[in-house]
């Protein structure tokens, strides 16, 4: 039956083209084989190896003299010590955690979350001036501390603020550098010029739009200002 079918396939091949058909079939078979090998290597080798090696424990590589059998009492003490040391890392004092990816914050007091809300953090804009100066507007990640607290803060406009608006940069203490009312009612300094402050652009809360500072709405800012003390920790991630 198979022979009959094969013969009929051969019969289908026009006689004048049979050699080229044969070459075509040779190439096809080899290509198909290579594709199968490629797919096997990509998708099946790893699972196959995993099945082959499953439940085979490696016991040869450790010299028994390198292993110490722990004393249960001593071990218990060590665990308690490590646990206490580790738990002590979470402050009992109030602290704030800021998520820069989705622009949210969480405020904690006595290790319990007491408030959460939207904020705005750095826009990840790289500003290039005509005189080849550059600024990156992002909120740096890490642990900071509240270094200062101010009510009714006045913003001292840095150079980039003039550069990005196409204005000439004034001298350091020029009156045009001082702007009141744009930072809200409170500001908390966390170092290197970064502040937690209010904003007049409330519609942008929850979006990455700032020059690196952390902006909040009036109610959240007031709660944060009243909860955090000088020295309180600010975790930015």
């Amino acid at each position: 039956m198979l022979n009959n079918n094969s013969d009929s396939i051969d019969n289908l091949i026009p006689k004048g083209l049979s050699k080229s058909w044969r070459i075509f079939i040779y190439v096809d078979v080899i290509l198909l084989g290579l594709i199968l090998l490629f797919l096997f290597s990509l998708y099946l080798t790893q699972p196959l190896v995993d099945v082959l090696v499953r439940n085979k424990l490696n016991i040869s590589s450790v010299d028994s003299t390198e292993i110490i059998t722990p004393n249960p009492q001593k071990l218990k003490k060590e665990v308690t010590k490590y646990k206490q040391k580790f738990l002590a890392l979470t402050p009992v004092q109030p602290y704030i955690v800021v998520n820069t990816t989705y622009n949210r914050f969480k405020l904690y007091k006595k290790r319990k979350q007491i408030r959460e809300g939207f904020c705005s953090t750095g826009s990840y804009t790289l500003l290039k001036s005509r005189d080849k100066r550059e600024w990156i507007f992002h909120t740096p990640k890490g642990m900071y501390r509240v270094l200062g607290k101010v009510t009714n803060p006045v913003w001292r406009r840095p150079d980039w603020s003039f550069v990005e608006e196409g204005l000439p940069i004034p001298p350091p203490n020029h009156p045009s550098r001082w702007e009141a009312g744009v930072l809200g009612d409170y500001a908390l300094s966390i170092g290197n010029g970064y502040l937690i402050h209010g904003t007049i652009y409330k519609r942008f809360l929850g979006m990455p739009v700032t020059h690196g500072c952390i902006r909040m709405n009036d109610e959240d800012l007031e709660a944060v200002f009243k909860t955090l003390e000088i020295g309180s920790k600010v975790y930015v991630y």
Binding site: S123, Y124, T125, L126, K128, R130, V163, E164, G166, L167
Partner: peptide
């Protein structure tokens, strides 16, 4: 990792 957007500062206020 850092979705940086490059912004070239305007020459003057008319370009801002």
């Amino acid at each position: 990792k850092m979705p940086l957007m490059v912004k070239i500062a305007p020459r003057d206020t008319s370009e801002y």
